[in-house]
Amino acid sequence: MSILNLHNNLETYLILAAVLFGMGIYGLVTRRTLVGMLIASELILVASSINFMAFNRFTAPDPTMGQIFTLFIMAIAAAEAAIGLSITIAVYRNYKSVDTEDLVDLNG
């Protein structure tokens, strides 16, 4: 199989999605601000969308299903980004910081 024919191969997309998911996990465990963690969680969501679309293109009988699912994931991601932004701003008003180590009171 030629390297130029990789786009017709299910495994290419699955590996790409796994790499993006790993980057999201890495960002989530190493970032020390709330905004950085928000960015990393977007990477994880996009990796799951790529998985849905890859299986939709190569194996699923009905190719509309994965596209609709991906659209729903996008809507949820937009809602999550809006809520995350407002929570970040509320935390910043109260603590004057978005560093996760300054927010230990929120541990409960």
């Binding site: 790499v19 998911f21 009988p61 009905d62």
Partner: peptide, 30 residues
């Protein structure tokens, strides 16, 4: 943290490469 992410990544890659996915015939064009 790097090891955590690498474990997740290579676990998923191994899962993707070692699984036989059943391919169904398409019923429409999407």
């Amino acid at each position: 943290g790097l090891i955590t992410a690498a474990l997740a990544t290579f676990g998923m890659i191994g899962l993707a490469l070692n699984t036989m996915f059943k391919v169904h015939p398409k019923i429409n064009m999407g």
